[in-house]
Design a protein around this nucleic acid. Structure first.
Ligand SMILES: [Zn+2]
Ligand SMILES: [Zn+2]
Ligand SMILES: [Zn+2]
Ligand SMILES: [Zn+2]
Lengths: 133, 133
DNA sequence: GGCCTAATGAGAATGATTGTCAAAATAGGC
DNA sequence: GCCTATTTTGACAATCATTCTCATTAGGCC
């Protein structure tokens, strides 16, 4: 199964990225994370931030998904698993959960012989405020 | 609700994009579509392809989603509504349906006052073949 | 300490997407 | 069909996230 988990060397930079991510409740882009680290003095090169996030994603330590405009965003996956309901006009996002969906995803994967399945679910709509404009 | 559907003028280029898309059974990127049109002699400027796809997406005439590496891909949405279960190793995709999920998505949107909601659901796992390797 | 090698960072390079703006095409009214 | 107001197009430049390059730095280990 190509378990490409060669142990990485532990460095200040990787720890900084991991810690920062652990402190954030929601998704951030690599750019944002880089800026935050810079602001806190714990400066890490941009390329390194990208590499760390990549590695952690590959190892399943963090979740990655894409915003509507294609930017990759990351989140520590310790947070409660949930999904987003996003307004296509103002970008406001509501966190939603759905046990039924979680079960469905697992079931569908199992039915087709897939293992270690993850899923991405995003709902995009127009919120009440933006509708009345 | 800012129904920005001012009727667009109909042009050869937009027709070409729409036709090409109607002929393709699966998702294509703007770049691929542009190349195909060029090869078939029905040449259309790249920027125009992007604009046409954008417009059609905004009008709900086609579906757009993002590949793993962030590229936007499009498909005529005449096909039956379904989702994909994709193998992270070999890329094999299985089309799956789930009435329960569809209902959940609608319900969640309604609960929060969102209208005209669409959703993106993708499940990524490791298929049976790739597991045994 | 010293060696080997992986990790870092500054900047260049890539590549999809979007912006610019003059030229061409459309929709209507005549 | 012809004319005009407005939209659309296309070649090219500009943006911007992400990746690549490669000289330098710093873990892991003796
Ligand atoms: Zn809104
Ligand atoms: Zn879920
Ligand atoms: Zn597979
Ligand atoms: Zn669905």
């Amino acid at each position: 199964m190509s378990d490409t988990t060669q142990p990485r060397r532990s460095t200040r930079q990787q720890a900084a990225v991991a810690n920062q991510l652990a402190q954030l409740p929601d998704f951030v882009s690599a750019q944002e994370l880089h800026a935050q680290l810079r602001d806190e003095g714990e400066s890490v090169g941009l390329a390194t931030v990208y590499r760390a996030l990549q590695a952690m994603t590959a190892e399943g330590q963090i979740d990655m998904l894409r915003t509507e405009d294609g930017e990759a965003i990351y989140r520590a996956c310790s947070t409660t698993h949930h999904h987003h309901l996003v307004c296509r006009e103002c970008g406001r996002a509501v966190e939603v959960e759905g046990p039924a969906v979680e079960r469905w995803a697992e079931q569908v994967s199992a039915e087709h012989g897939f293992t270690d399945a993850h899923h991405v679910i995003e709902i995009v709509g127009t919120c009440a405020d933006c509708r009345t404009v």
